[in-house]
Design a binder for these strands. Structure first.
Lengths: 219, 219
DNA sequence: CCTACCGATCGGTAGG
DNA sequence: CCTACCGATCGGTAGG
């Protein structure tokens, strides 16, 4: 029942040619950051409002409720995933080592905005039931398609025969997510700052690779 | 500063052979479950009280504040970890394949009570700064000791030369934690119920093993 | 978009 | 005096 006024331009002031993010966008971004770092319950609409620089009630003008704002943030994440996926696969198939390309793109997707990884992790923990279905829908197709690729590699002897493709890919996905989400905390143990993160990232890639590919016969 | 009275009775000696958990224990357990499944902010003292079957004020008699209750729950987890660690290492060193034993004990530690994994994950996300220091202190020694073992294996050619011991162990630890914490949700994708969990657990162990050990020469 | 509010419930504390 | 609690309510703030 709320008006869906185009937020930027009601007519007058907006002569700016630069694409200014809409208020909705600003709210979504702020909410994403807060949901990711504090969790849904601990995030108050007031806190979101203060980041954006508007009132709490202004947020409730754009989003009917806190829950609706949460849904919008999630949908944005899913949409971005679905838009990125095809590109990810195309890039990968054009590469000699297809798997390493897919894996690095996967990690890059989350590293480009660590809030994505944190948000997914929070969803997994806070709303397991809802997230179960959601995950099946979103990553199910992706999983099947890459699993097929893994199986082909197994038939050719490139991939280890004892790999469980779907289970393997899920574990790798989980590693990428938690690796990004807790990078600052965990990697600090193996080394402060960027150095620790670098070591963690490299080892992550090594584990994913070594546990998939058959040992090369000594040339 | 709280008295540490034997929780059962004041006067009569411990004639009861059955160890009744103290009210403090009951509160801690209930709080652990709720903190793990909902997070600190989303857990109300009222909810903890209802699980235990006492009043909210009774909880605040045993624990000065919600924060103090949270600290007690964490301390309990850390204490249990520190008590379990020696046994874990002894068991492992008595086994032929020491690493697999350590790893399975590690997973077992979290699987024995999935709330442990969930709680650690929540701490990592909710209080990264505090948890960073905590983790260094708690798992630092453990990490160093096992890393040394990995290095010995590397010198003997049993372990892959390109393994980064500390980084590897951290990744494995993370895998165990997230694997247990999100087992129900993630494993449902590869198969409903126990079957999916079993596949996930097996693949997890396989990944940890295959990415550490050198490929065996074909006999 | 804001000011002015609501029913409810938060963590914590009062006296008994 | 102590303990282990209770019913009632504090000042603030949540989502709406």
């Amino acid at each position: 029942m709320r008006n869906r006024l185009p937020v930027g331009k009601t007519g007058d002031v907006n002569t700016a040619t630069v694409e200014t993010p809409s208020t909705q966008d600003l709210i979504r971004r702020a909410a994403m950051t807060l949901f990711a770092s504090r969790g849904y319950e601990a995030t108050t609409l007031q806190a979101v409002a203060e980041v954006v620089g508007i009132s709490k009630q202004a947020i409730l003008h754009h989003f009917r409720s806190k829950e609706e704002l949460h849904d919008a943030v999630l949908r944005q994440l899913i949409d971005h995933w679905n838009r990125t996926l095809p590109h990810l696969l195309v890039t990968a198939s054009a590469t000699r080592n297809r798997f390493d390309a897919v894996f690095s793109e996967l990690v890059a997707f989350f590293q480009a905005d660590p809030d994505r990884a944190r948000l997914v992790l929070r969803e997994l923990m806070d709303r397991p039931d809802v997230t179960r279905k959601l995950l099946s829908d979103v990553i199910g197709p992706w999983l099947s398609s890459i699993a097929t690729y893994v199986r082909i590699g197994q038939e050719r002897g490139v991939h280890r025969a004892d790999v469980d493709p779907e289970a393997y890919l899920l574990q790798v996905l989980q590693l990428a997510i938690i690796g990004v989400a807790t990078a600052d905390v965990m990697s600090a143990i193996v080394g402060e700052g960027p150095e620790g993160r670098e070591r963690s990232a490299r080892e992550l890639a090594r584990i994913a690779h070594a546990s998939l590919f058959s040992p090369r016969p000594v040339a």
